[in-house]
Design a protein around this nucleic acid. Structure first.
Lengths: 190, 190
DNA sequence: GTCTATAGAGTGATAGAC
DNA sequence: GTCTATCACTCTATAGAC
């Protein structure tokens, strides 16, 4: 029999897409089985805790990606403007310019929020904290930086909702462009 | 037998809360039955089309509320600044200052988007169109008005996602305050 | 009797757990 | 694959208003 290579880590991107598209409640084991090509037995072998463990692993995987690709650079890059520009580019790439929604946002709005409350909250607060720091280094006064950061993260989530609701990625692209103009203006800072 | 009051219209606010909290997929008939206090027989008496008809009726009810309380005033109030101020107040009241999410946004992010695609899209485009008009009458140049409107509607949705994700209504309240400063600045227009 | 609102047992299908 | 619980839904029965 053809031992098709899988380890748990290989499954996470596939599972991520399933939860992103269907939400936690809507992602049935039948769908997960079809999309991963694995039977229920294999899925329970990798994730003994069942669907909840799969979703938790996906959230951890997403969180790790953002931590290394977005949050840490935001915190550590000394040039705040460069840090923010990189964040906007990574964000655009990750959300495929609005064709992909945020699985954490999807979980946040549904019943699943309660089940994954800690992970959902920490993802957003880590993002807001890291961005506020970079905005400060980019020259925004501390109080403005905090408010602007919260607004930017909310705006990204809202643009994803709009893009999905209107079935059109353009609102997301326009929003990122406007965000860039506000967060990294041509002249060093307001 | 105890003829207990209900007509279809009385059920819509209750159903709205159930779908808002649980999403379409998460709102089981058992939950709906418990929350409305009605047995399945009664529910199917009012909504022969079942859960899908209940959700469609809730979306129509929400849409009607926004049409009469938000969109039409935005279109018809000649004073753009007054129209926008009224919209922000109605929005704050409707979403209970961030303690309530948007059922249309909840549907938009989940699988249910496809099922209710037309209603979901038209809700957001009606809002953006109406607000863009009012922003124009408030003195914003037409191109800015369109972009600003899209941004404002997205920002409201994003703030609701954040408020729910962080389990804290404060981000929504702060967002509305900042929005007011940008949409209706102290001096007539930028 | 007819009509409307009610309750809930019972249907097959499908869920997630194992 | 097997299991049980739960899903959306159907159907029958019943109570009261007319």
């Amino acid at each position: 029999m053809a031992r098709l290579v899988y380890e748990r880590a290989d499954l996470l991107p596939l599972l991520g897409e399933v939860f992103r598209e269907h939400g936690f409640e809507g992602a049935s084991l039948a769908v997960i089985s079809r999309r991963t090509g694995l039977g229920k037995g294999s899925l329970y072998h990798f994730f003994p805790g069942g669907k909840e463990e799969m979703a938790a692993a996906v959230l951890a995987h997403v969180d790790h990606w953002f931590e290394t690709q977005v949050f840490r650079p935001l915190r550590e890059e000394p040039d705040g403007r460069r840090a923010i520009t990189a964040m906007l580019e990574a964000t655009d790439a990750y959300f495929r310019s609005g064709r992909r929604v945020c699985v954490v946002g999807v979980f946040a709005l549904a019943e699943s929020r309660d089940r994954f409350a800690v992970k959902v909250a920490s993802y957003f607060s880590a993002w807001i904290d890291a961005l506020a720091g970079a905005l400060g280094r980019a020259g925004h006064p501390p109080d403005d930086a905090r408010a602007l950061s919260e607004e930017a993260v909310g705006l990204i989530q809202g643009a994803l909702v709009l893009a999905r609701a209107l079935d059109d990625p353009a609102p997301f692209a326009r929003t990122l462009a406007r965000l860039k103009a506000r967060l990294v203006p041509e002249r060093p800072a307001p």
